[in-house]
């Protein structure tokens, strides 16, 4: 007996993600999923972002890593609630991990929830976390061709953040080519250029976030 189907392989993940998304929307929480290779600056960008927020802002971070709570400790210094998700080997966050780490947290009162994914440009792509927007970071010490090498990740992103632009004088990185490659894979992608070291471009990043609130 042959049974034709159209069942999504990750339908259980998608179901939980849809529940999370409804919850975020109901409470007016802007949830952002941050994806990049290891070392592109996700944690640094969040550090600069949290450092710039007024203490009264209702902002929280879930940060994923395979091992250690180093990132959570880095981020906790800014006074906002931060939780580490140690995936224990998994190379991505999934919706169930997010759901589980939101229990007994004042999540329904949040304006912004940042989800810092595990550093990996492949696996996080497949997992909807219930986010409203997805940002992928690419630093200028990497190759401009990453959007072409990892099209799935860039195709599913709303925003590309080009980070470490303070290093441009020292590395053979073409901003033009990086932008062009990203737009080939995702013609509608928004692009921002920042340096978490010098602070250049962070105002536009903050504006981008505020626009989504």
């Amino acid at each position: 007996m042959l049974v034709p189907l159209e069942r999504k392989v990750l339908n259980e993940n998608d179901r939980i993600a849809a529940t999370l998304r409804q919850r975020f929307q109901r409470n007016g929480t802007f949830c952002l999923n941050l994806i990049s290779s290891p070392g592109s600056g996700k944690t640094a960008l969040l550090e600069r972002t949290l450092a710039g927020f007024d203490a009264a802002r209702r902002v929280a971070v879930l940060t994923g890593d395979i091992q250690t709570d180093n990132d959570a400790r880095r981020l906790a210094r800014y006074g906002f609630p931060v939780r580490q998700i140690s995936t224990g080997g998994a190379c991505h966050l999934d919706a169930r991990m997010v759901e589980r780490h939101l229990t007994d947290w004042p999540v329904d009162e949040l304006e912004i929830l940042f989800l810092e994914n595990v550093g990996n440009l492949v696996c996080p792509t497949s997992y909807d976390l219930g986010e409203e927007a997805r940002a992928v970071l690419l630093s200028v010490t990497e190759g401009e061709d990453k959007p072409l090498k990892y099209p799935a990740t860039f195709h599913h992103a709303d925003l590309m953040v080009l980070n470490k632009i303070d290093l441009l004088p020292y590395v053979p990185f073409s901003m033009e080519l990086a932008r062009e490659n990203a737009r080939r894979v995702q013609p509608e992608i928004e692009i921002l250029e920042v340096s978490c070291t010098s602070g250049e471009g962070l105002e536009r990043w903050n504006d981008w976030i505020e626009r989504h609130l």
Partner: peptide, 11 residues
């Protein structure tokens, strides 16, 4: 191009 589906089962 972003499909990840179970398309049939033979039982």
């Amino acid at each position: 191009g972003d499909q990840m589906e179970l398309s049939f089962l033979e039982l």
